[in-house]
């Protein structure tokens, strides 16, 4: 799961994630790290400051096909989206 360090995840966060997530999904994320990385990068480039928190909470979402993943967020005004997610990441499931 070293690829997450590229996206500024701390070692503690990665260790915590490995210890508290279903093994099958961890394996899936490793298998599709390029796709997952692409989705993480999208949020980071969009300006979502707490994108790491979003991943750690909704990591299964990041296994979505990239175009479907982008579609979830693209229908909102970026500034509005950034502010709402920054305030409370749980809003992601309602997007």
């Amino acid at each position: 799961m070293k690829f997450l360090e590229k996206y500024d995840f701390s070692k503690e966060d990665i260790a915590e994630f490995l210890n508290n997530s279903p093994k099958k999904l961890i394996d899936g994320i490793k298998e599709h790290k390029k796709l997952v990385g692409e989705n993480i990068k999208y949020l980071k480039d969009l300006g979502i400051t707490n994108y790491q928190e979003v991943f750690l909470e909704y990591y299964d979402m990041f296994l979505l096909d990239h175009s479907n993943f982008v579609e979830i967020f693209a229908k909102y005004e970026p500034e509005d989206l950034i502010e709402k997610i920054k305030k409370n990441i749980k809003v992601v499931e309602y997007l």
Binding site: K24, N68, I72
Partner: peptide, 14 residues
């Protein structure tokens, strides 16, 4: 509906 849009991918692994 939410599941179909966002959270379906995990079911690929079970």
């Amino acid at each position: 509906k939410k599941a179909e849009e966002k959270f379906l991918a995990s079911l690929e692994y079970v």
